[in-house]
Nucleic acid binder design. Structure first.
Lengths: 131, 131
DNA sequence: TATAAGTGCGGAGTATAGTCCATGGTCAAG
DNA sequence: CTTGACCATGGACTATACTCCGCACTTATA
């Protein structure tokens, strides 16, 4: 897969892909086909990797953190215990984020209920939700 | 409340507070006490507003979006129907975000299970989760 | 072999979100 | 009335994450 095809598959601009390559987040093969090809070749796994990067971004990680997490993950790949540790720490961080998100949702839903009920005395207060 | 006290209450650097004021995200009173005071005066509600901004940030909104959302909210404050519409759209966006987050969690937890189970043939694939 | 389309690379430019600093004004205590 | 702590403003600076541009090279097609 050449970069333009990969860009379509990953739904990312080519420039962004090159930026990720420069940052070390993506590592397409160079010179496949016996060294005659000067272009970067992408595998289907790279599409998954790109999707993972975007997912991690929406979860609030910077590209630097994503690189560190993914390298940490790769480093622990030969030890299942270490891999599980890495995954668990990522899961914990996501669970914290989910808790904050749920608190925000409760807060907003509480506001809706409060308005629908004809504004009884007390409006929901942000401080009452652990956001 | 003067800015240094507010900074402690909101747990934000003074410079960041000033930055938010410049962006229109916070609007402390100017010249309270009969115009004799040239300083910005913060109310407890401003602390709540600051917390809300940080919460919205962790949920992935940019300061520009937060400003727009909050102004939209204020604009609809005289109409409870409009207010509910605004809140509902914010709630929907948060629910989408929660769905993506839950998908990511399932994916990571699936990976842990897969490793713990001694790596049966199929690893969980990101594409199987709507992230 | 010309020509268009695609690729790689370096470097400049942009947007966002702060962060730091110098200057100068204000205020309360001594 | 001076001193020290606090405050406001403008402008410069930083980091992150792109985004765009120009140039040179490659490859497929006519």
């Amino acid at each position: 897969m050449l970069i333009s095809e990969f860009a379509k598959a990953a739904e990312l601009p080519i420039d962004t892909i090159r930026f990720y390559i420069a940052k070390g987040l993506l590592k397409p093969d160079r010179s496949a086909k016996g060294g005659s090809n000067p272009y970067q070749i992408f595998k289907p796994e790279d599409v998954t990797a790109a999707r993972m990067i975007r997912l991690q971004q929406t979860l609030g990680y910077s590209l630097g953190e994503i690189l560190a997490l993914n390298e940490e993950y790769r480093a622990g790949e030969n030890s299942s215990e270490r891999t599980i540790e890495v995954l668990q720490s990522q899961i914990e961080r996501l669970e914290e984020r989910r808790a904050a998100l749920n608190a925000a949702l409760s807060f907003l839903q509480g506001k809706v209920e409060w308005i629908k009920a004809g504004k009884p005395n007390e409006a929901p207060r942000l401080e009452d939700y652990q956001c």
